[in-house]
Write a protein that binds this DNA or RNA. Sequence first.
DNA 1: TAGGTGATCTTG
DNA 2: AAGATCACCTAT
Length: 184
Amino acid sequence: MAIARELLGTVLHTCINGVHTAGIITETEAYRGLDDKACHAHGRRTARTEVMYHTGGVAYVFLCYGIHHLFNIVTNQADQADAVLVRAIEPIKGVAHMLERRNMARLNKRLTTGPGTVCQAMGIDKGHYGASLQGPAVWLSHHTSYASNQLVATTRIGVDYAGNDALRPWRFYPAGCPWVSKPV
DNA sequence: TAGGTGATCTTG
DNA sequence: AAGATCACCTAT
């Protein structure tokens, strides 16, 4: 949970086919393998979730609804299976390339607010499954830190199937930030 | 508000 | 081997 908060204000970079794009992470969700039914890895260690059981610092990417790739950062020690989903970014580099990838004409909030659109704009797909977050394709750099009283915590999106665990307030974003998929 | 889309997991 | 299930997005 702490890492999900610390990642807000961190810059996510990708370099794909020589194209460098980057954005400030503005919305995250935390998932915990051991006791969180909303986590894909909870009670399941399969080919798809295997990388979540690895030591943190790698990417967990999966395909959702047959269309959208979702990008997660594996965060804990081996066998804990914890991860943070990146749900939105504020684009800061390579905006023209992001617009092209998203097939959009003008910059607006919809470019990178939502986990599926973040991946599309940044060029992330299943080829990045298990990739190191220390480059060369994907990496992070520091930009801003937020005090905890600047952050909003809400329940996570789209996890109603998880029963009580759907109520955990493990979705975070900076208060007032416009680059958020669904403000409260 | 509903439908598209395909990998993954279960046998509903 | 087939069917259900999804951490979503876009357009009506």
